[in-house]
Nucleic acid binder design. Structure first.
Length: 563
RNA sequence: GCGCCUUUAACUCAGCUGGAUAGAGUAACUGCCUUCUAAGCAGUAAGCCAAUGGUUCGAAUCCAUUAAGGCGCGCCA
């Protein structure tokens, strides 16, 4: 699990500190502590492979112009035996460093030896992380927002795994509370309507066709057996009949979307084992609640929230947030995860500080809960917004979306934007099989490489026969740029894990495909000038293929060998 | 009224914890297949980084104010 860029960066850090240390020892600069400096990869390749602002940030401490300090440091640097060939002073006082050719060969060899593990890091050090996402209401089908949450959460979980975290995926089933009551009412009305059409559906109940379908299936099995029974019994029977079907449906649809959970956590278990009641009891015991208008309130403002909120209604039923508190308490304390990540719609942003306030009041480590808020999705068709209307049951569901566009496209597209940005999803573009579609652009690069490898194997050289000692002959800009980007995968994985941002990976994939296409255009493998060059390029192709494959595997997107 | 998010090219968006001439992709225009997949590549054109002030060697990036848009602020979830 080596990370060539990180190794080089660490080596450079040491070389710089050594150089400054010698300057201080020789009295060439004042004996001041070296300020924090950065080693970065310049955007402009003419500025080298790495650059540091060391000379600039130490100008004040050393009482010298940055460029003079840079000159002193460069004189004192010992690059022999390092992976750096040379250093030069540039601009206002940057020191730019250029890697040796052998470093690039090392990158390719590294990929070829690590194979499907290339890109993994041990940054997470095995810390236990729980990613909860989608957690769609089991009373109805999933919608487009769930599609975004699914792609985002599942890819994030995969990224965290690659970054060395012990990651679990979890779905929280809201199988209790008001939603279920509403679900029961809706089913009950549809059931009774079958026998007495005058029964009316309440305005705020579920009006979707799925409810009617459940009622009809229920009738096929039980006929009018529950018409005369008391309401509670009838409702329980209907929910017990329909809910498991819905949950199984969620699981099936998500699986089709390539999402498989490690755990499905039922809200009802929190009611049954007393956890929900315990939340209210404990908060009351600690003196953090008060009664007003017959309801029990939590003093959330004492824990940083914007306002107090009701825990138990005047009718004795807890509000939705109580089981949520119990659930997150379970994650952070009972199950003791090092990190719990929730993927939520941005409309929940006001709720997060309240939840955390309650957790803090219960002495749970609320700082271990990170919430990724994602903005709304706007579906675009023919350049116009597709209006969503959830209440009428006419929302576009995840299933209909996936009927319309390929899974690969959905998973890729939903991860092209940061969670935090409003998402405009172009349905026409997602189904398009053309260069305009970024998914195809990336997959095409993979298919192209496979084609090269096939052709070469048929005609002249197989991968197995290619000699790695020829890699040093690669020196064209397109070859070097490609290798440089290949080397960045572990860095990108860490960066995406740290920022909880899978869009970094889709960007990485697009850029990698782009660099390969440029290489392809400029450097023929089959018609390389020498046999050595041909073998080196073939190996580079395989390293690029492997890197592309691994990148798409993180996103769970297919890598076709032919297109 | 209060809080969160957004504002960068004609369109959709990058721009990492402040750094060297502001980047992609689409759309437009011009070239490149007797040569490993043209679902590709090369090139041209396109920007008052919403506005104003501040912080400093240096600001699209940090701070304040303003404007426009989105979303929250229930004894709904």
């Amino acid at each position: 699990m080596s990370n060539c860029i990180k190794l080089a960066s660490n080596e450079l850090h040491g070389l710089l500190l050594d150089a400054v240390g010698r300057l201080v020892a020789d009295g060439k600069v004042p004996s001041e502590p070296v300020p924090a400096f950065k080693i970065e990869i310049p955007a402009d390749k003419t500025h080298g492979d790495f650059a540091t602002n060391l000379a600039m940030v130490s100008a004040k401490a050393f009482h010298m112009p940055p460029r003079n300090i840079a000159a002193l440091i460069c004189d004192e640097l010992i690059l022999d035996g390092s992976c750096f060939e040379r250093a030069e002073i540039a601009g206002p006082g940057f020191i730019n460093f250029f890697l040796r050719r052998s470093w690039f060969s090392g990158v390719v060899q590294n990929v070829l030896s690590e194979k499907e593990n290339y890109g993994k890091t041990d940054t997470g050090a095995g810390k236990r992380v729980l990613v909860e996402f989608v957690s769609a209401n089991p009373t109805g089908p999933m919608h487009v927002g769930n599609a975004r949450g699914g792609a985002l959460g599942d890819s994030l979980a995969e990224i965290l795994l690659w970054a060395g975290y012990d990651t679990q995926r979890e779905f929280y089933i809201n199988d209790a509370g008001n939603q279920i009551e509403k679900f029961a009412t809706s089913l009950e009305v549809r059931y009774l309507q079958h026998f007495d059409p005058s029964v009316e559906m309440p305005e705020d109940a579920y009006h979707g066709a799925d409810i009617t379908e459940h009622a009809e299936n229920f009738i096929k099995e039980f006929d009018n057996r529950y018409v005369g029974s008391d309401s509670k019994e009838r409702r329980d029977a209907l929910v017990a009949f329909a809910l498991p079907k819905n949950i199984a449906g969620l699981e099936r649809d998500l699986k089709k979307y390539r999402i498989v959970y490690d755990n499905w956590f039922s809200e009802s278990t929190l009611h049954k084992n007393g956890s929900v009641k315990k939340v209210v009891d404990k908060l009351t015991e600690k003196g953090y609640t008060y009664e007003q208008d017959g309801a029990v309130w939590f003093k959330a403002t004492e824990f940083g929230a914007d306002k107090d909120f009701v825990l138990v209604r005047a009718n004795g039923i807890p509000t939705y947030i109580v089981p949520d508190i119990a659930y997150h308490y379970d994650k952070l304390v009972t199950r003791n995860y090092d990190k719990a990540i929730d993927i939520l719609g941005a409309d929940h942003h006001g709720y997060v500080p309240r939840l955390k306030a309650a957790l803090t009041a219960l002495d749970a480590p609320a700082d271990k809960l990170d919430v990724v808020l994602m903005q709304m999705v706007m579906l675009m068709r023919d350049g116009e917004i597709v209006k969503l209307s959830k209440r009428s049951g006419k929302a576009i569901t995840l299933v209909t979306l996936l009927d319309e566009i390929p899974i690969d496209a959905a998973r890729f597209f939903f991860n092209t934007r940061e969670a935090n940005s409003h998402f405009e999803f172009d349905l026409d573009l997602a189904v398009e099989k053309s260069s305009q579609n970024p998914v195809y652009y990336v997959q095409y690069a993979h298919a192209r490489i496979c084609s090269i490898i096939r052709t070469l194997a048929e005609n002249s050289v197989s991968l197995e026969d290619a000699d790695k000692s020829f890699l040093d002959v690669l020196d064209k800009p397109q070859e070097i740029e490609l290798i440089r980007h290949i080397a960045a995968l572990p860095v990108e994985v860490d960066s995406a894990a740290k920022a909880y941002d899978p869009s970094k990976i889709t960007k990485y994939a697009s850029e990698l495909a782009n660099l390969f296409h440029k290489f392809y255009d400029a450097c023929s493998v089959k018609n390389a000038e020498t046999p050595e060059l041909m073998q080196a390029r073939l190996l580079l192709c395989d390293a690029a293929r492997q890197t592309l494959y691994n990148t798409l595997r993180i996103l769970k997107i297919d890598c076709p060998e032919r297109m």
